[in-house]
Computed example of a mutant assay.
Amino acid sequence: MPISIDRFEDGPEDALDITQGTQPHRILQFLAEHSDEAFTQTEIHERTGIKRGSVGAVLSRLETRDLVRHRGRYWAIAEDDRLASYATQHAASSASTTDDYYGEE
């Protein structure tokens, strides 16, 4: 989907442009929800349902953008201000969808 040239020219360069539902979004969402842990590619595959062969490629692209970090076989969410707001926004969104609007029975 094209965007206006004004948005292209004036948009913030540091914006986190990850489309919801994509593999990068799903991996970032998973890692943001578990920001106090690090995972192997196999564990990320098993927990997200993304094909094992795709996980490595997605993680490499995310690492290039400084959105994830790794040490040895383990991967974790990066320490980045954009990701802090992303995680906060996701947590708020998740909480609003699980609120009990009708009260307990």
Rank of each mutant, 00 (worst) to 15 (best):
T40M: 15
Q23I: 09
R61A: 15
E13T: 03
M1Q: 09
I18L: 00
F39D: 00
S35R: 10
G56A: 12
G56E: 10
H90D: 01
A38W: 11
I77L: 15
D66F: 07
A76F: 06
L59G: 10
E9D: 07
R82G: 09
G49L: 03
D10C: 06
F30I: 11
T98N: 08
L62S: 05
Q89G: 10
R73P: 15
S96V: 05
P2Y: 05
V55S: 01
L59A: 14
D81A: 14
Q29L: 13
G11E: 05
Y101S: 08
G11L: 05
H25R: 08
Q29G: 13
Q23N: 15
T42K: 07
H25I: 07
H70N: 13
V58H: 06
D6C: 13
T19E: 06
T42P: 00
R73D: 15
G56D: 11
A87Q: 06
T64I: 12
I77Y: 10
D99A: 08
E105G: 03
G56N: 12
T88K: 14
T88Q: 15
Y101V: 06
R47N: 11
R71H: 06
R65P: 02
D80A: 04
R65D: 13
E37N: 06
T22Y: 07
R47H: 12
D6T: 12
P2T: 10
I5P: 12
S54R: 07
Y86E: 00
G49K: 07
G49P: 00
I77V: 07
K51M: 11
A84T: 13
R71Q: 14
R26F: 11
T40N: 09
G49F: 04
Q41W: 12
E13M: 07
T48G: 00
T22P: 04
I27N: 01
P12M: 04
T22A: 03
A32E: 04
E43W: 01
P12W: 00
D81P: 11
R61D: 14
A84S: 11
V58I: 10
E9S: 10
I27Y: 01
R65V: 05
E46D: 15
A32K: 01
E63W: 12
M1Y: 01
D6A: 11
A84I: 13
D81H: 11
R82F: 02
S93W: 01
G53L: 02
A32N: 06
R47W: 07
G21I: 06
A92G: 09
L67T: 03
R73S: 15
H25L: 02
T97Q: 13
H70P: 11
Y101H: 09
T42S: 02
E43K: 15
I44W: 02
D81K: 09
S54I: 04
T40Q: 15
G11M: 03
D80W: 02
R61I: 13
L16Q: 01
G21S: 02
D6I: 14
A91I: 06
V58Q: 12
L16A: 01
E46C: 12
T88P: 06
I3G: 03
H45W: 04
D66L: 06
E79M: 04
S96R: 11
Q89R: 05
I5T: 12
S94C: 10
E105D: 04
E9T: 13
I50T: 00
A57F: 02
S93I: 03
R52D: 13
D80R: 06
A57Y: 03
Q20G: 03
I18R: 04
